[in-house]
Amino acid sequence: MKFICRLPFAENFISANLQNSGENLVEFTSFLGDKKLEIKTQSLETLDANDFEFFFKETLSLPESKGLENFPNHENYLQELEKAIETIRENSLAKLVISRPIKKEISNLNLEASFKNICEKYNNTLSYLLITDDEIWMGATPEILGKFNKKSGNFFTMSLAGTLPLNEEWSDKEIEEQKPVSDYILDKLKRFSSEVKVSETYTHTSGNIKHLRTDFSAELEIENLENLIKELHPTPAVCGIPKNFCKQKIMEIENYNREFYAGYIKIETEEDIYYFVNLRCAKIFNNCIIAFAGGGITTKSNLEKEWQETELKSQAILNHLIYN
């Protein structure tokens, strides 16, 4: 098992290889919290551009895809969205996040070149590649669930929700979608810190789409860090409120296992502990790649626009693959 990533705006890469000793410096937690993958290692290694190829020196055999059949088409997904809107109305919910797996047939994928290309295209994301004996995940997520500085005790997080193509203007739908996420995060932070700072809401660009974003910072004791993360995850940006009720409804409507999609990735460096929401990600096989994408559904949602939003989000990975 091994892992390589580039933190947002960083020049170098960080890599980790499973050593079965040391600390859990890299962890993947699934959306439902029922699956956790831990990489125990003595330290994370920093790689510059010249060392990058060293990570890929071993010949890699891509896993086979088995039992992957549940891929909703356009009509199926719109039916799921109709169920979501009905659920929202019946239960007076602010929003419900519905996603879908998107399958693309591939052959002769160049994993190294694809990962490098995604890193170049998305400088403001956590771009990563996870390789285990059973599965391969790759992603470029723009959303920070938490960043904790060990020295200062400062905790940072963001409310990132509402999605549009770059050429469209914000509407009430996107504003209504993002506000409950901000309210939820602020409420959780106030339970752990008496000093919380909130920014103005602004536009965050990620490749071919944009989001509404609000930043939060707070002073936090390190012993409260994991409890805060558990309270925050999953935020309404990937789930809904109340989260346990919404998680159950999501499973009923989507009818597939999100696995690590919309879960979170923990990376601990010497100075900081990062937690990234695992978005814009895909699972890679020898003959296909499964990308995951979703959107926040409200009573004002336009079903066709929601379908197009998932198409746009999946392009973050699918449109930047390199083949031999």
Rank of each mutant, 00 (worst) to 15 (best):
R280P: 13
E270Y: 03
A316I: 08
H320Q: 03
S43D: 12
I253H: 07
C239H: 09
N124S: 14
S92W: 05
K36N: 05
N70E: 09
I273K: 12
F9W: 09
E176Y: 14
L109Y: 04
E135W: 02
S43A: 14
L279P: 11
K179M: 13
E45D: 14
K188E: 10
T157Q: 01
K147T: 07
A140G: 06
Q79P: 13
L78S: 08
N257Y: 02
N227C: 13
L81Q: 06
R89E: 13
S314W: 00
P165Y: 10
L228C: 09
K190A: 11
Q178E: 00
L68I: 10
K247T: 00
C5G: 06
N123M: 13
T87I: 13
R258W: 02
S314G: 06
E69Y: 08
S182F: 04
I317Q: 07
N108D: 14
N91G: 11
P8N: 04
E254V: 08
E259L: 05
D215I: 04
K313M: 00
A49H: 15
L164Y: 01
K104V: 02
S206W: 03
S199H: 03
P63V: 00
D51A: 13
D133H: 08
F292C: 06
E120W: 00
F260M: 04
N17S: 13
W137I: 02
N108L: 04
C246M: 05
G294K: 01
E90L: 15
K2N: 03
L81K: 04
